[in-house]
Write a protein that binds this DNA or RNA. Structure first.
Length: 721
DNA sequence: TACTATTTAATTTTT
DNA sequence: TTAAATAGTA
């Protein structure tokens, strides 16, 4: 047998991991060290050399994209399709298990998945129904609480609230939320994992079956696993399963979503003999970039410890740009991209990364102005759009009349005279008699509805029943097509002649073609419509379709994880924004921000730009900020200040050693950007900018009464306030 | 009941 | 600035 293609292209550490004996392995894989490659080649090695059937291998990832890529690359390397290999996301695999064993964990066969939007709506409903004050009990926060409990594997009964009344109420809400979901046959994302774990605990024979089957379990991005995911893997692996975990503790950026880096340490405790392999050679970035990233991450205390190195040359220094405001920053970045493109490079090779989505707007504005095609990742995704969710809600009602969430969503969409009053009546009656909204509506809320409401409600009920009959023998895409037309959604949006209305129609039509091209996973063994609905919930799709065009890439630092670009801009490197103000006071949160910075920097292959603005417009008002502390953590030998419009000779970022937590950009005269000052003639104002130092320094001040003026320090006699 | 005006609050978001 | 949720009006 020729194993050359499997191991020939690997370095020593990679080869050690790929060819390791069939025992637990933990691969600590730095950024750009070829971790996906190792996973793919490991699978190929197991199949080709060790003679393991793909049937006995499970590979788990976090994103649909990652699992699609893994399957594709394995099949390419093995040069054959491997349909019986289980590759998927945690949620996808849990879903498959639950479909097969629904009754074992007390779920109806027809259970449906709700996304976090639906979850929030449901929780808001419950808060209202409990008569609680919605400003004290914020749906988003209650949702966060519930998911956190679920991520930790806790049911309401497991939570000890002691004398904490707030907590007791949260648990009560959790309980009623769960009862509601159970009654409606709804499963949220966290619930998928929790039930899959309970399946192992409740059904030893089922567990034994899968333990026998999966002798090898490979896990990608292990640092991002949460408690339930870890427990689920741990139980499945048991004593006989061989776990092959790949992760990087320095790239753990989802702690706030329940991810536990500690799982990497725990793994070493649970499998004392585990083989630990570090991949430390980076194949992506120049040494300047890599050294800078290493220097940043060294400031974190909680690390497994590794040091990435590269054979690549120094490359260009990292460019630092101190912008005046966010518009200046955008202008600068876009000018650099124009240079890049003029040099014959691809736009798609340039990425603008930022901490929060709101930052994309300014960049979009300038890109649009310069007619440069761009693509923003994130934001609303296809299956999350309102009109799509409306259509899906109708389809879900066809599957399950007891789906209250869907019922509420479309009962009056398009408007058909069923107002808030009527829905309230239906809901109250349903709650009092433990009925679904559908059943309650059937009985006219126990006869409490007036004639007009009864008529309107029955029209709706009849409509859904008719849709069910009419679509019974149709193919999936015909069903979808029929439902969006006959439900009144299409006519409803056709009335809206605006651009938005047109997009909505287009999206609904796109839904039909999505149904047409949808290929159900045979292993899921579901009827087409149910499979399509699950697919829609588990894989929300992309935000924008035009992938093929050569576009500048805009995305948050979080969504850049796992990607690489020759040219990278990290914008908004400012205290309060990055690190974000909500993380700054929590040491754990700050370290996570730093890891995020590390992730961002290591996306860059040949050129990295870091920019920050003195002044930034946020939520409609101007704010001043200092340069991010992360900039000061990069040794100056790797960086270079850029000033295309030479204004000032300004000091480079310095770490203030006397007060270890203070970082300054302005050493002169006690003048800080944003400083309030008083002038004899002009009155009070704020310092916007300055140049030079000492008595020659000039400052720009925005006076309340007189507007902005440039003043020479030694003449102006400014009084600090 | 349906539409419009006002108020409120705003990290990150693999599934 | 902006989106979304609520309050107010036809």
């Amino acid at each position: 047998m020729d194993v050359t293609p499997i191991i020939d292209t690997l370095n020593d550490a990679q080869r050690e991991a790929v060819t390791a004996p069939q025992e637990p392995v933990l691969v600590i894989a730095g950024a750009g060290s070829g971790k996906t490659r190792v996973l793919v080649h490991r699978i190929a090695w197991l199949v080709e050399v060790e003679g393991i059937s793909p049937h006995g291998i499970m590979a788990v990832t976090f994103t649909n994209k990652a699992s699609a890529e893994m399957r594709g690359r394995v099949e390419q390397l093995l040069d054959m399709p491997v349909a019986n290999l289980w590759v998927g996301t945690f949620h996808g695999l849990a879903h498959r298990l639950l479909r097969r064993h629904a009754e074992d964990v007390g779920l109806p066969k027809t259970f449906q998945i709700i996304d976090s939007q639906d979850q929030k709506r449901l929780i808001r409903r419950l808060i209202k129904d409990s008569g609680l004050d919605e400003s004290t009990w914020v749906a988003r926060e209650v949702q966060y609480f519930i998911n956190k409990q679920k991520d930790e594997g806790r049911r309401p009964d497991h939570i000890d609230v002691g004398k904490d009344h707030t907590r007791a109420m949260l648990v009560r809400l959790y309980r009623s939320y769960q009862e509601n979901c159970d009654q409606n046959g709804l499963v949220d994302f966290a619930e998928l994992l929790l039930r899959a774990h309970e399946l192992w605990l409740k059904r030893p024979e089922v567990l034994a079956h899968y333990q026998r089957r999966f002798g090898h379990i490979l896990v990608d991005e292990f640092q991002d696993t949460n408690s339930v995911q870890f427990a689920w893997l741990r139980v499945l692996a048991g004593d006989s399963g061989v776990l092959f975990a790949v992760g990087d503790d320095d790239q753990s950026i989802y702690r706030w979503r329940g991810a536990k880096v500690e799982n990497m340490y725990q793994l070493k405790k649970d499998f004392p003999g585990i083989r630990e392999i570090k991949l430390e050679q980076n194949y992506r970035s120049t040494s300047n970039i890599l050294n800078a990233a290493n220097a940043i991450i060294t400031n974190n205390s909680e690390r497994l410890g590794k040091n990435l190195w590269t054979e690549d040359n120094e490359g260009e220094p990292i460019k630092l740009y101190n912008a005046y405001n966010e518009r200046d920053e955008a202008e600068f970045v876009i000018a650099r991209i124009q240079d890049w493109v003029n040099q014959g490079n691809l736009r798609a090779d340039a990425a603008i990364l930022y901490r929060s989505n709101a930052q994309s707007r300014t960049f979009e504005e300038y890109l649009f102005k310069k007619q440069i095609p761009y693509r923003v990742y994130g934001g609303l995704r296809f299956f999350e759009r309102a009109e799509i969710k409306d259509a899906l809600a109708y389809l879900r009602l066809l599957e399950n009349r007891a789906d209250d969430t869907s019922f509420e969503r479309v009962v009056n969409v398009p408007t058909r005279g069923i107002g808030a009053r009527t829905v309230d009546e239906i809901r109250d009656y349903a709650r009092a008699n433990a009925l679904s909204l559908w059943e309650s509506a059937m009985s006219n809320a126990g006869g409490q509805l007036n004639a007009r409401a009864t008529g309107a409600t029955h029209k709706f009920l009849a409509l859904v029943e008719e849709l069910a009959q009419e679509t019974e023998s149709l193919t999936l895409h015909e069903q979808v097509d029929h439902v969006i037309e006959r439900s009144g959604l299409i006519p409803h949006f056709k009335k809206d002649r605006s651009e938005q209305g047109e997009t909505r129609i287009e999206n609904l039509e796109e839904l039909v073609s999505a149904a047409q091209t949808f290929e159900p996973d045979e292993q899921d063994e579901l009827p087409p419509l149910a499979a399509f609905l699950s697919h829609a919930a588990l894989e929300a799709g992309e935000g924008q379709a035009d992938k093929w065009e050569d576009c500048v890439q805009l995305m948050t630092l979080h969504s850049a994880k796992g990607l690489e670009f020759p040219l990278v801009f990290m914008a908004g490197m400012e205290e309060g924004l990055f690190p974000h103000k909500r993380s700054i006071n929590d040491p754990g949160g700050l370290e996570e921000e730093r890891r995020l910075c590390y992730v961002g920097a290591t996306r860059a292959m040949s050129q990295l730009y870091l920019s920050h603005a003195d002044q930034r417009r946020m939520h409609g008002t101007d704010n001043f900020a200092q340069a991010s502390r992360f900039l000061a953590e990069i040794p100056p030998k790797y960086t270079e200040e850029v000033r295309p419009n030479i204004r000032v000779q300004r000091p480079v970022y310095q770490k203030n050693t006397t007060h270890s937590n203070t970082y300054t950009v302005t050493p002169t005269d006690g003048i800080q950007l944003g400083q309030r000052v008083r002038h004899g003639k002009f009155g009070e104002g704020t310092v916007l900018n300055y140049e030079g130092s000492g008595s020659h320094a000039r400052v720009q001040v925005n006076f309340e009464a007189e507007g902005t003026k440039w003043l020479v320090m030694s003449y102006a006699k400014l009084e600090l306030m």
